[in-house]
Nucleic acid binder design. Sequence first.
RNA 1: GGCGCGUUGGAGAAGUGGCUUAACUCACCAGCCUUUCACGCUGGCAUUCAUGGGUUCGAAUCCCGUACGCGUCACCA
Length: 522
Amino acid sequence: MVTRIGPSPTGFIHLGNLYNALIGERLARQSQGVFFLRIEDTDAKREVPGAVEIILDALGFFGVVFDEGATIQGDKGAYGPYRQRLRKEIYQTVAKKLVEQGLAYPCFATEEELATMRQKQIEQKLNFGYYGVWATYRNTNLEEIERRLQQGQSYVLRFRSQGNPEHSVKVLDGIRGELELQENYQDFVLLKSDGIPTYHFAHVVDDHFMRTTHVVRGEEWLATAPMHVQVFDALGWNRPIYCHSAQLMKMDGEIKRKLSKRKDPELALAYYQQEGYVPAAIWEYLLTVLNSNFEEWRLANPKANIMDFPFSLEKMSTSGALFDLLKLNDISKEVILNMSAQEIYTQLLLWAKNYDPSFAALLESDAGYAQRIIDVGRQGERPRKDLICWRQARDFLSFYYDETFTIEDSLPANITDALRKEIITKYLATLDYNDTQEQWFAKVKTICQDLGFALQAKKYQKNPQDYPGSIVDLSNTIRMALSGRLNSPDLWQISMILGKDRCIRRLKQFAENGDNFASTPA
RNA sequence: GGCGCGUUGGAGAAGUGGCUUAACUCACCAGCCUUUCACGCUGGCAUUCAUGGGUUCGAAUCCCGUACGCGUCACCA
């Protein structure tokens, strides 16, 4: 199979592009075929400088590899050029052939004329468009055409459709099966007045000459597919197999709608780069949406490479799926759990260098320490799954560094200032860094009893008036001192990692200042 | 308005005529585990497959109508 993606250089590339890229990529790889990148830059108005770099950068970040196509250094592959504007002559040659066959003709209608026509059609409740009696230039004779050309009148080249709206055309779709669509009867534009083709024409010409076998695109193209097959047929070319994918949707208040470039900036691929999502997690999530049997496969093959999953068009859904960030997060946790501390460190550092240089500096100042804090609680039978993406990881790990350590939460009301000081004083008195975790916790329990705290949280919950607090309050006081929060990984483990001096400093500091602790200790 | 695609729980979905008293995953809820939070475990969460008819001994699965959602109807892709 030969597949491709054809993004437009608008400076914006989003999840939907990646979604279709993934389909094309899998299809090509699994069949030992070819997957290429074509830049669809036929609309100069929407083009943004540097947009091709943005596309390449984002796709590269997600590990999408092309066999052929546009690259920063220029085109790669024997079927180029892979940028449509560079293919102008090719389109014009084909267009000329269509004109010779009487299947295309110049149209001199101005924008105003077309607007007026549309207005009339609305008033008369007719179908919109350029067809039938409305196709005013369809039968212009040669002399007239020549006269207008000589006057330098601007024109577009239109397809002379032989279609009938009463008829239907069968289109083979790799995802949806055989579709019966209304035949195209519109004389749509092939070449715009600047001689550049519209998508409709460029798609047909390019995918023919670039020997594309499967055209993977969003379902918004379903409605225009009859136009495309008409041109393929007119030219006597083989039609590709269309694969119209269901679109990723989003809830916008009460309504469900497709992802939109303008309204959903958070769905730009750049968003995932900024948040620091692991590319593999995005692929994995997309695959769960694309092929619902993927999750089952993943469960059966937890360590297998994603590329070994047998992707199939038949398993694809035909209705649009809502994008679910919660599920992505869940998958991300799992993916990061399966990475080594070394790998996490490398990717986290790379992210931080781009998005948080000061954090990057901290990570780099002691790579061994960084990897140890990353690995806290990740061993054993029930490893922690704390990390979702690098931005969140940065916040999660911040307390391990004095430079970013802050008191974020507050102690419950039953732990008064006096109690806090007493707890920490007693704790400091017994603290011994040579203890094992068991010895350490036994001491904590002793303090608990000394202070009359409940050893079991439940007892305290049932009869709060009988105790000043429970062991939970006691541990959390220490936890607050060390991590600045009420929630953290195992206390003794973080104590070991933070080291004796730093812990004692933070404990004293917290005993003294409590929640008012504002900045880092010296 | 025309044309087209779609409609199984809060989300993604499995299921294509009897094995379905509708898998599985996420979310949510309850409980267990537990020094916190996570993790993990157990259980709960659609008597019903948008809706009305029809075909059939039997339908989420086949047919027709209706409703709703989405897409499209540019010299944008």
